[in-house]
């Protein structure tokens, strides 16, 4: 066996780098969050106590941002898992051109988030020239200014389009490892499609579903690019999530103190989610 010391030495660079990447900024965030620190007024410094937290907490954007963050994560999880599962079940059966369909279905996932947002913003949701507006015109309906009237729904649409392929890809990969003989045996024994789905496919997919939920939660808790490109958090705070709110505190208002307090808050929220997820899913990954 390899000696323990050598193994440690080989792992050390990664662990130290990652540790530094995590701990240094984290402790700085924590430190700043108790400081009076605005990049525009460097002379006003000193201990701020909890005032940054209070400021962030009482910001009129805070309530909506928190609600929007959770709403985005929740609805995206439901939409992508259900839709991804449906698509995977449809494509699973062999048919002519399946490979092509699969490639087409997966493609949106490789699109850059900023491109995704721009395509939807301009070519679909634009109230005058967008395809949705044109389609509404065919039916004689009033065109909708999607991003102004339903910003959150618009974001959910474009993000679902991008992330359903992810769920689909994982489900279809998992489905292909399902024991075909078992399914065949169940069919011969007279099990209908639904009971086969219910008792065979769904249990088989339990773990992939859990993983999709975990990974998407990680990514969706801090959605940023799509909001930055499309709505800029507006109108009002209607599509501001925590990530975007902290961003605007930090780089638009240059208030490092308040932004750090927000950062601490985001980290706590992410950790609450993470603890649940790791407990639930993470352990089973390593075995």
């Amino acid at each position: 066996m390899m000696r323990g010391r050598l193994a440690t030495a080989l792992q050390a660079p990664s662990v130290l780098a990652l540790g530094a990447w995590m701990l240094v900024p984290l402790s700085m965030t924590l430190f700043f969050s108790f400081q009076r620190y605005n990049l525009l007024y460097p002379e006003r410094s000193g201990l701020a106590g909890f005032s940054n937290y209070e400021f962030f907490w009482t910001d009129p954007a805070f309530g909506p941002a928190l609600a929007n963050t959770l709403l985005l994560v929740g609805s995206l999880l439901v939409v992508t898992v259900v839709l991804g599962l449906a698509l995977a079940l449809l494509v699973e059966r062999a048919f002519w051109g399946r490979g092509v369909v699969r490639v087409l279905l997966v493609s949106p996932f490789f699109i850059m988030p900023t491109v995704n947002a721009l395509v939807w913003k301009n070519m679909f949701m634009n109230p005058v020239y967008g395809l949705f507006a044109v389609a509404a015109g065919w039916f004689g309906a009033e065109p909708v200014d999607w991003l102004a009237e339903a910003p959150l729904l618009s974001l959910i649409i474009m993000l679902s389009w991008q992330w359903t392929p992810f769920a689909f890809l994982i489900f279809i990969t998992a489905l292909q490892s399902l024991d075909a003989e078992q399914a065949e045996a169940a069919r011969v024994d007279g099990a209908g499609y639904w009971s086969r789905f219910r008792f065979l496919t769904l249990p088989h997919l339990a773990r992939p579903i859990a993983i999709v939920v975990m990974i998407q939660s990680i990514f969706h808790l801090s959605i940023f690019a799509e909001i930055f490109v499309t709505t800029g958090g507006g109108p009002g705070y209607d599509s501001t999530n925590l990530a975007f709110m902290i961003f605007s505190q930090a780089l638009l208002q240059f208030d490092a103190g308040v932004a750090s307090a927000g950062g601490v808050f985001a980290i706590i929220l992410a950790n609450i989610v993470a603890i649940f997820l790791i407990r639930m899913i993470g352990r089973s990954l390593v075995v």
Binding site: L18, A243, I246, A259, A270, A274
Partner: peptide
Amino acid sequence: TKMLPAVGVLMP
């Protein structure tokens, strides 16, 4: 560490 939100450490 993957779950650490990037915005949380943006400032530092």
